[in-house]
Computed example of a mutant assay.
Amino acid sequence: MKIAIIDSCDHCYVSEPDIEREVLGEKAEVDLFHVRNTGELPAQVFGYDGLISWHLVPLRAPFINSLRQCRGIVRAAVGFDNIDLQSARERGIVVANVPDYGTEEVADHSLAMALNLLRRLQQGHAVVASGSWDWREVGPLPRLSQLDIGLIGFGRIGMAVAARFKAFGCRVRFFDPYVSSGVEKALGVRRCESLAGLMQSSDLISIHAPLNDETRHLIGARELAMLKGKYLINTARGPIIDCAALADAVSDRLLAGVALDVFEDEQAAIPMLFLQRNDVLLSPHVAFYSQAALPELRRKAAQVLLSLVEHGYHRNAIH
């Protein structure tokens, strides 16, 4: 069989397909393509049996409709918003993701961002850098065990984040209309029946939802107004937050703090406003990463694809 890895030529994740070749062994020929978009791929890719997709190169309908014998596409990540699922279904191509890699890393990164904001570490650094050791200049600091933490999305990562906040004594609640009743009892958290209820009752909001038509710009001006004096963290997908509305909220100093590992358009320049404020914390879409997580992701993506191509099924298939 022939397998293609489609990665970006900018900020690529795979420089050499050594892990994938090790997993697939003699069963497949593996080719790696670094492109800016699918229009730069050679025509030979249309005849490949399976694809591993990295998120910076969208696989839209015209490309998928041109695949002649592809049996499976694996999105090397949890989210799969860069793939046109409807077109894949119409072509009989099974799409799967890798939902069980990097859960610890994203949860840890979310908590690290929260602690940075809540303990005002950037402000503390600035105080010392200015030559002062006056702790009063850092500003007010809340006690973590007195905080209500709100999670948007309560899948694997949301649950892992909840466990970490609970270890600090925080009260944790979530909003996720797709999670069955009873999870809250098993994990000792509280369910909110509406997004507004979650926003109004939480001191800090952390986003752990997938990007789809329902969640795109889920957090806009109306929702941000509910977070006056509160904290907002996003380690999920950038477009879940309306960037223009967030810029207005940051400019008006509406929020106590904002931490973003993802941005609405990661190919565009970050607005200077976000770079000049000590109540805004940014990281370069790195929450998923550790020296253990990336090889794990690549290995699992290849294993899932092998199952799709050979058997037409894997438990990670997206239905």
Rank of each mutant, 00 (worst) to 15 (best):
M1T: 03
D7Y: 11
S8C: 06
S8W: 04
C9R: 14
C12L: 07
C12N: 11
E16T: 11
P17N: 14
L32V: 02
F33Q: 09
Q44E: 14
V45R: 03
F46C: 12
H55I: 15
F63A: 01
D81V: 01
D84S: 00
Q86E: 14
A88Y: 03
V94D: 04
V98P: 03
D100T: 15
G102V: 05
T103N: 11
E104K: 15
E104P: 00
D108S: 15
D108Q: 15
L111E: 12
A114W: 08
L121S: 15
H125W: 13
V128D: 02
V138P: 00
S145D: 03
F154W: 03
G158F: 01
M159T: 07
A160G: 03
D176C: 04
P177K: 02
P177F: 02
V183F: 01
G197F: 11
Q200K: 14
P210D: 08
L224R: 07
M226W: 14
T235K: 03
R237D: 09
C243W: 01
L246F: 09
A247L: 12
A247M: 10
A259C: 07
E264S: 08
R277A: 10
V280E: 06
V286Y: 09
Y289N: 10
R298E: 10
R298K: 13
R299M: 11
A301H: 04
H311D: 15
